[in-house]
Design a protein around this nucleic acid. Structure first.
Length: 479
RNA sequence: GGUGACAUCGCCAAGUGGUAAGGCCAAGGUCUGCAAAACCUUUAUUCCCCAGUUCGAAUCUGGGUGUCACCUCCA
């Protein structure tokens, strides 16, 4: 039974889809005005695993993720550089895709953009006004929070408490300081669209309400993003959507929010300027390592970033991958057909443990722990076969490896090389040359010419090639 | 000021009432010509502090301390 922690109710709940066997999920995407930093990457890796797991369990998943490609920050960036806003958004949308591809994040089913949904947004704003929840002032349209009795239910705040703490200069035209813009009138020189209220553009929040409604319907299963979106973004989305559709039970049923990535225990954010971008970290570590680093911690916990911890993740991932390769190696051997019931038990137990962990609010940290346990079993078994030439149950070992592979597919690892991209630039030594040197070294070893053998090994190591001897011969890999 | 989260081995981290998973690092051992990889062993009678509930608490309650976050753009 899958349980998820729902921010709306503040507890773990059994997941019951709106439609049996199907899942609709809307994940808040990025505002493309900059390259994503690793804090931005966390929700995308997290939701990627959620999606992979749900699909693994047989759900048909529809995943929608927006681009908020019209916003103050985009206009500002365009003005600063003296280019059009389209230049900015195109550049960073491309940057976004490059980043998540490197992190092995599978693409969403659709990436709707605000600027391609202006008529839908205008229509929704009009419906909200018609229902009595919105009001127009000088070309701006505001949502009246006092009209919505459930305002604050997601973030657990009371309107009164928030008013007490409000400290930005309040637009005195607003009925309530917490009222937020559905539609903003255009200032001179700003991009705009024609609307019933004059030239303007959508406010922040409305795009997610509109596009989730359009592609997932009035009621769908999951909505998520980083914890900082709980208020005001998601709170406002709820208000807009429910007041548009006139049913306080509609909209997303399960709200999942990931914790922050911190640096020196402080939130990584663009405004604090203490962030590390995904493109930058990818210059030093393979995407899969960054991904693994994120998934080693439960998605709701804070995660502190440091060089040391990413190195730890790298060491751990390498361990898992070594077992994967070792296991695959003996699968190439014939084996026998004698049934090894112990192998079968190990495989079943591992799968059950893994599912149990993932069923508990997508506990990847625990699930990965079970992968380590299984990797030990694989190493022990495979080493025994290789070193002692023992006969083995190929069928059941194959099944065990399949379990390991299935786990890896949910976590999204072993799917790309752990080598750094630049190592593949055609520079350096070719595989043929390496093989030739290994052959020469084998000959030297045969003649007990240890000096030459070690010389070859050291020289390859200096070029980033690691040799591993075993009874079955010598393997090589890049460091 | 309001609201919420968190505090578990040197480091990271799982664990929400039944007697502390796992990873990294370290030490010793096995294997190896030597390495590497792998495997074995060792490493928290203890979970920030105090009090309480309970047969039993890291897990529940109350209080304290510390850290972080949201209330303003933020994943």
């Amino acid at each position: 039974m899958l349980k998820v922690y729902n921010t709306l109710t503040r507890k773990k709940e059994e997941f019951v889809p709106q439609e049996p066997g199907k899942v609709g999920m809307y994940v808040c995407g990025v505002t493309p005005y900059n390259y994503p930093h690793i804090g931005n990457a966390r929700p995308f890796v997290t939701w990627d695993v959620i999606k992979r797991y749900l699909r693994n369990r047989g759900f048909e998943v529809k995943h929608i993720q927006n681009f908020t490609d019209m916003d103050d920050k985009i206009i500002k960036a365009a003005n600063t550089e003296g280019v059009s806003w389209e230049t900015i958004t195109e550049r960073y949308i491309e940057g976004y895709f490059k980043s998540i591809d490197a992190l092995n994040v599978q693409r969403a089913d659709l990436y709707p953009k605000v600027t391609e949904h202006i008529p839908d947004i205008i229509n929704m704003v009009q419906r909200i006004i018609d229902n009595g929840f919105g009001y127009v002032i000088d070309g701006d349209v505001y949502f009246s929070v006092e009209k919505f009795p459930e305002y604050g239910k997601l973030s657990g705040r009371k309107l009164e408490d928030m008013q007490a703490g409000a400290r930005v200069e309040v637009d005195s035209r607003k009925h309530n300081p917490m009222d937020f813009a559905l539609w903003k009138s255009a200032k001179p020189g700003e991009p705009f669209w024609e609307s019933p209220w004059g030239k303007g553009r959508p406010g922040w929040h409305i795009e997610c309400s509109t596009m989730s409604l359009k592609y997932l319907g009035e009621t769908f299963d999951f909505h998520g993003g980083g914890s900082d979106l709980i208020f005001p973004h998601h709170e406002n989305e709820i208000a807009q959507s429910q007041c548009c559709c006139g049913d306080y039970k509609s909209f997303a049923q399960y709200w999942l929010h990931n914790g922050f990535i911190t640096i020196d225990n402080e939130k990584m954010s663009k405004s604090l300027n203490n962030f590390i971008t995904v493109p930058d970290i990818l210059k030093q570590y393979p995407g899969e390592v960054v991904r693994f680093f994120i998934l080693r911690t439960h998605y709701r916990s804070p995660l502190d970033f440091s060089e040391e911890r990413i190195k730890e993740a790298q060491a751990g991932l390498l361990r898992l991958k070594n077992a994967f390769e070792l296991g695959n190696e003996i699968l190439e051997k014939a084996g026998n057909t004698e049934k090894d019931t112990q192998l079968e038990e190990i495989a079943e137990k591992a799968m059950a443990d893994f599912y149990e962990a993932m069923d508990d609010d997508f506990n990847t940290a625990l699930a990965i722990g079970f992968m380590f346990t299984l990797s030990k079993e694989i190493n022990t078994y495979a080493n025994n076969v290789i070193n002692k030439g023992t006969d083995f149950d190929a069928v059941h070992f194959g099944k065990l490896m399949q379990v390991y592979k299935d786990m890896a597919a949910v976590i999204g690892i072993f799917e790309s090389s752990l080598e750094m991209p630049e190592a593949d630039d055609g520079e350096g030594i070719s595989p043929e040359e390496i093989e030739a040197l290994i052959a020469e070294r084998a000959e030297a070893k045969k003649n007990k010419n240890w000096g030459r053998a070690d010389e070859i090994r050291d020289s390859l190591k200096a070029q980033g090639i690691i040799l591993e001897d075993s009874a079955a011969g010598t393997k090589w890999k890049k460091a």
